[in-house]
């Protein structure tokens, strides 16, 4: 179980209908690649976030597969068109089975 994992999201609270907004996400995570060895020469098992998704009102916005080469604290910045008021749901899937979630609601105005 990776320690100190904390998802963060920055998204606007309001958008006009059809506006393209920028969304930033960051999750603090060591992203242990599985390639390193500890002090006594034993391999450190891989422990990474392997998938990240964002949905808007149930519709997929982005679905990312992460590989061991991705650095610590993975950061994503992407754009989404907001057609109506609703909620963005963010989900990160950890190798150890943990699922981290966050959500942001966006109003039309």
């Amino acid at each position: 179980m990776a320690e100190g994992v904390k998802p963060r999201v920055k998204a606007p609270k309001k958008a006009s209908a059809g506006e393209v907004v920028t969304i930033k996400t960051l999750i603090s995570h060591p992203m242990e690649s599985g390639q390193r060895k500890d002090g006594s020469g034993n391999p450190i098992p891989r422990s990474i976030i392997n998938r990240f998704t964002c949905t808007f009102n149930g519709q997929m916005v982005i679905d990312v597969t992460l590989e061991p080469a991705v650095s610590t604290n993975p950061y994503f910045e992407f754009e989404a068109t907001i057609p109506e008021a609703g909620a963005l749901e963010f989900t990160w899937y950890d190798d150890d089975g943990s699922v981290y979630e966050d959500s942001k609601s966006i109003e039309i105005g």
């Binding site: 960051l26 993975p74 950061y75």
Partner: peptide, 9 residues
């Protein structure tokens, strides 16, 4: 280092 996926910079 942050992994940056910039669709519009």
């Amino acid at each position: 280092m942050k992994t940056m996926i910039l669709m519009a910079a």
